[in-house]
């Protein structure tokens, strides 16, 4: 029980004032063999994700699947309702007057794709998450304003608090802090 209650080290965080510094630090950390790390920034920094060694997200494919589901749902719903469940002769028109079914099919395609897009993005990002250890970093508020943070996490197989701290200090940060997950 005790070790659950006790605060564990989450990682070592370096704070940078400039996007190029955090980008360089991320590249260096990867070259040094660190794998479990993340960077936090007030704006998307292009190349940072690649520097951290991450692959492209599958989100676009999920959205495509969502859209396709919407198309099939939209058309299928109208087909079933107007042709199978309650065929209704309106002015002698065929019960499957498919061109008239396109607007609703289109709208449901967009609706399903957009819902998948937003909820998929938040789900893949693990949000909402009210408590994240990174918020324990001193001055972390500035990650939403003008500072950039790089965290090498304790989960990293090479993690050693002193070595990581020394390594990050070489990258020219404003500050380096060890944070816990409590």
């Amino acid at each position: 029980m005790e070790d659950i209650l006790e605060a564990q080290t989450y990682g070592v965080v370096a704070e940078f004032a400039h996007p190029n510094e955090v980008l360089a630090a991320a590249h260096k950390a990867r070259e040094a063999g660190y794998t479990v790390m993340d960077a936090y920034s007030p704006v998307p920094v292009h190349g940072l994700d690649e520097a951290l060694g991450r692959k492209r997200s599958i989100l676009a494919w999920l959205v495509f699947a969502g859209g396709l589901t919407g198309t099939l749902t939209g058309f299928g719903m109208q087909y079933w309702m107007a042709h199978i469940n309650y065929p209704w002769n309106v002015g002698g028109r065929p019960t499957i007057s498919w061109p008239a079914f396109i607007p609703v099919t289109f709208e449901l395609t967009i609706l399903f794709a957009a819902l998948t897009c937003v909820f998929g993005m938040f789900a893949l990002n693990g949000l909402p998450r009210p408590h994240h250890p990174i918020f324990n970093t001193p001055n972390f508020d500035r990650s939403a304003i003008d500072h950039y943070f790089l965290c090498i996490e304790a989960k990293d197989p090479q993690f050693d608090e002193e070595k990581v701290t020394a390594f990050l200090k070489e990258c020219g940060p404003e500050a380096v802090n060890t944070i816990t997950d409590a």
């Binding site: 993340d38 960077a39 951290l52 893949l124 990002n125 998450r129 408590h131 990174i134 918020f135 939403a144």
Partner: peptide, 13 residues
Amino acid sequence: LGWTGSARHWHRY
């Protein structure tokens, strides 16, 4: 929603 500005999150965002 507890947005942290993580690089991974920005990428998907």
